[in-house]
Amino acid sequence: MSQMKFEIPKIELMKSGHVACPGCGASMAMRYALKALGQNTMIVIPACCWAIIDGPSPCSVNGVPVFHTAFETAAITATGIKAGLSRQGDNDTTVMAWAGDGGTFDIGLQALSGAAERNEDIIYVCYDNEAYMNTGIQRSSATPWGAWTTTTPTKTPKSRPKKNIIDILLAHHIPYVATASVAYPDDFIRKMKKAKSIRGMKFIQILSPCPPGWKSAPEQSVHISRLAVNSKVFPLYEVEDGYRYKISLNHKNIPVEEYLKHQGRFKHLSKEQIKQIQVDTDTKWEVLMKKVEMGELFSEN
């Protein structure tokens, strides 16, 4: 069999009519997430793109209950809802916090850290589009080094590397942490289902292409996501119990330049700067490989 066949649940909880930009990665991500989690799900959305995408009150595009909340409170609101359901004797409903990188990496970090430390039984999904896209493409701590945003213009692009949110979450020793990509819906859905099956805190980071913010062509969103994975800028892996690392698929060896060149936000980069990004990416991949090895070492004992 030459072409991979998708094995994706047929159920469509997210409906048409949402107001995401054409080619939005976050809308694809929500579609897959709900396909995986099913009808018995509640979503908590803080201030982020998805607060708008879902539709104005009294409309919602998602066929499950959605609770809109303040920017910094996604994790704690989800915790509260889960506690409330539990108090009513409902331990089956999945509660998912669905926040952007601003609400996760920056302003919502304390609530997230708190929920993780308490090992609350929620799924926290960060759809990471690497800047405050909804308010006009301002830099966040998820914006990669060298990228253009409206607050890091091309003369002085972002001078600090992207925050490693996965490592922060792993430091809390929670049961399940994973990265996922909209270019690999099978893998995405498998991870969401796995997260649903685990009790305790789950964290999933999704690289979510943003055509207006990344200055990329809407039709290339899936293609760019695939390049991000295969250039190892955004490798796909999962970590169980804080140390058992598992790489999700065979990453092809694609130079980062392939990934960068499709995006206007990296257009100003010089050859040397691209080389620097390549070196950084390779180093991070090496480190990840070492962690995989160490995880194997511990698993044997």
Binding site: G17, V19, S57
Partner: peptide, 18 residues
């Protein structure tokens, strides 16, 4: 409704016009 809550989906929003 007594509180701000969704009572309908977004099917009225025909995004095909974009």
């Amino acid at each position: 409704p007594v509180s701000a809550m969704s009572i309908t989906d977004m099917s009225k929003n025909k995004t095909g016009s974009w």
